[in-house]
Design a binder for these strands. Sequence first.
DNA 1: AGCTCTTCCCTCGACATTCGATGGGAAGCT
DNA 2: AGCTTCCCATCGAATGTCGAGGGAAGAGCT
Lengths: 108, 108
Amino acid sequence: MANVDILQGTLDMLILRVLDRGEMHGWGIAERIAQLSTKDLLVGEGSLYPALYRMQDKGWIESEWGQSDNNRRAKYYRLTKAGRRQLDEEKENWSRLVTAVAKVMASA
Amino acid sequence: MANVDILQGTLDMLILRVLDRGEMHGWGIAERIAQLSTKDLLVGEGSLYPALYRMQDKGWIESEWGQSDNNRRAKYYRLTKAGRRQLDEEKENWSRLVTAVAKVMASA
DNA sequence: AGCTCTTCCCTCGACATTCGATGGGAAGCT
DNA sequence: AGCTTCCCATCGAATGTCGAGGGAAGAGCT
């Protein structure tokens, strides 16, 4: 019932995926991931914000200050074109990895 | 066609899995993983040996010097009981992770 | 004998990333 | 006023992977 640690590199893909459905602020992204994964995946803020900065530096996402539903100051992130391409690439890599691991793990 | 990077934590599971089929030396483990994954997974020696030491420290594997098929000095590793338990646990975690990621990645 | 190739071991520094702890500020409720 | 919730952010520690190195010793060739 405990949660699984997020493997290195996976977090970016998850964030990109969430933003692919529409812009969202940091806190909301973490909530969404927790919710979608039924809390198997819990993103700490110490992982989340550095990741967002990284990704913005790389041009995958862009941000803008706005107002949250709860009337609070929030920074909204949205995918760029490069971000969408990156998402596709990461999905591709992820599935290649899962397949390759499955091959090794399968008995023979 | 290129290979995928191994995500942190995954390598241990792969090594344990290979050793679960019988003892083997380091070089052979790397070869086996490459072969089983049709070279999608390539374990560098700079990742492999530290991993083997780590795992031996934790008591998951034990080693013994021997002679390889090619008549060379080789250190053979084999799973301990704790190692087999660890393998089960890591398989369980891996599948939980894959499932959780799939949930987030699935459209909704 | 000498040379090269292959097999096998090992180590080191750079690098990237996650995590837990910590600190704030501001809105809203009691 | 005080407490809780929401939201941003940073820091140090820990971990683990990678690429580049170095070394020893058998096998095969000339």
